[in-house]
Design a protein around this nucleic acid. Sequence first.
DNA 1: ACAGTTGTACGATGGTTGTCGAAAGAGAGG
DNA 2: CCTCTCTTTCGACAACCATCGTACAACTGT
Lengths: 122, 122
Amino acid sequence: MPRSQRRALTHPEADELDVLDILHALSDPTRMTIVQTLRADPERACGTFPVDVAPSTLTHHFRVLREAGVIRQREDGNRRWTTLRRDDLEARFPGLLDAVVTAYERQASPPVSAAGGPGQPH
Amino acid sequence: MPRSQRRALTHPEADELDVLDILHALSDPTRMTIVQTLRADPERACGTFPVDVAPSTLTHHFRVLREAGVIRQREDGNRRWTTLRRDDLEARFPGLLDAVVTAYERQASPPVSAAGGPGQPH
DNA sequence: ACAGTTGTACGATGGTTGTCGAAAGAGAGG
DNA sequence: CCTCTCTTTCGACAACCATCGTACAACTGT
């Protein structure tokens, strides 16, 4: 009996995605870091994300992202693997995920082209 | 003495915009309606938005949008005019606003191309 | 000066959210 | 069977948020 029996691990259908739920899910630094990490690596286990919160808090953030339809989670033995629902998001809201994550990455490491050089990030 | 003396009506600079603040500001239906309306009409007075909330609630939403850098407000006599900060947003986060509002409009009125015809929105 | 319009400030309230610790479930491996 | 690892659930808590009513301030027109 797989571990998913414990809770149904519900995912919304692709045509049920709500853009306001998605924006809310992405408006948190921890969750945005999760999404950003998943854009680079296609699939990761829960415990391998570069975030600094308690495990129970991480579970909460995964649930918010999953119920908003941003990520998909599957079980494999003891691990829970997480993927980004890129195709579903792209089909329903073209360009949205790219625009948001690109904006976040641009903000996190601003372009060095500006005057004054890189300096120290404030 | 203009009305703006009462409260400073602070706007963040273009290079201070935080994408997480912006996403949070846009993750509310009332505020998204305000932004959507401003994309069609360049400038509107506060009381002319097609939203159904109390005036004090509307003031709150305008403040959230303004402090996130999404809108700009200026005073003219008794009215407070609101504009979208399209250029500032585009300069800092290219394509973000368009992607978000387009996604919202697509969701609000889904394409009729799907099988089964328009039907009644659930 | 007076009343009407427009929008804000304040306080309250019920709901949501991010955070954590403690306890427990499910699987892997000895 | 026992232990270890990974992740979840539960309960709690402080902070935040959307909403409203009431009172008020600034401007407009008469």
